[in-house]
Write a protein that binds this DNA or RNA. Structure first.
Length: 259
DNA sequence: ATGGTTGGTCGCCAA
């Protein structure tokens, strides 16, 4: 089974590239974040014509998540009980071939002294509390998406510059660590220990050609997923500008292959 | 220390 997570930064603007991605990788499941569209305006027909079923949880202008799958999804869940900001569409879960997948768009937080930072921490805690109460680490479970957290300094192009900044702070990393301590593993790190592997590059200041990236799009899985994990790849090509398909998202897709 | 781009929407906010 192949699962991709991608912060698409507007599904309507990115539709040609999204269709090309489906064609190129033929994933069983594509988890999208930042679709930025209300459910009745989601380009459902074009994606269904490509052979995918569509489950959306969106809102106007901001946020929005979606699951595109070849086969029907079971037990689709939009949001989670205890979410401190339920008006923001940031989480959708479903089961595919016995594997429960949660697709998250974690609050960015803006800056450590921003009012949005405690909301980020509360949202992560809210999801963790739900997961800890309602799920077990011995289940077949993956939690994927844009976490807006770089887990370690090796996930940051310039750790000194980013030290203590949003996406890299101790508080955020400790919150992510609570997910790992519960029983989830950063599946990318099973097969790659080195630095220089990023999934997001700021649109500004030519960050991508300069290599100024962070790895903030993650694939977390329980112990049974470790056994089934064949590898996790980052599709850096998708972040490059190409002719004819429009501009890239500021995030690269991340591809998980399970036995 | 700060830079400066993209998307949604149409004056800015968010990232």
């Amino acid at each position: 089974m192949k699962i991709i997570t991608w912060n698409v930064n507007s599904i309507r603007t990115r539709l040609p590239r999204c269709l090309a991605l489906l064609e190129r990788h033929s994933p069983d499941l594509l988890c999208l974040q930042e679709t930025k569209v209300e459910d009745d305006k989601f380009p459902r027909q074009e994606i269904e014509a490509a052979g995918y079923q569509v489950e959306v949880f969106g809102q106007k202008t901001y946020n929005g998540v979606a699951l595109l799958s070849k086969k029907p999804l079971e037990n689709v869940q939009r949001g989670f009980p205890g979410n401190p900001i339920p008006e923001q569409a940031r989480a959708i879960g479903a089961t595919l071939d016995g594997v429960e997948v949660w697709n998250l768009y974690v609050v960015n937080g803006q800056a450590l002294d921003s009012p949005k930072f405690p909301i980020k921490m509360a949202w992560l805690q809210g999801f963790f509390d739900w997961m800890q109460g309602e799920r077990k680490p011995n289940q077949d479970l993956v939690v994927v998406g844009d976490f807006n957290i770089a887990p370690e300094d090796r996930d940051v192009h310039d750790p000194k510059k980013w030290s203590g900044k949003i996406l890299c702070s101790d508080q955020e990393r400790e919150k992510l660590q609570s997910f790992l301590d519960w029983g989830l593993t950063d599946l990318f790190r099973l097969h790659e220990a080195g630095d220089g592997h990023f999934t997001w590059w700021d649109y500004r200041a030519g960050a991508f050609p300069r290599g100024w990236g962070l790895r903030i799009d993650l694939m977390l899985g329980t112990a049974s997923m470790i056994k089934r994990c064949r590898g996790v790849q980052i599709d850096r090509e998708e972040r490059k500008k190409t002719t004819g398909e429009g501009t890239p998202s500021d995030h690269a897709p991340v591809i998980l292959e399970l036995d």
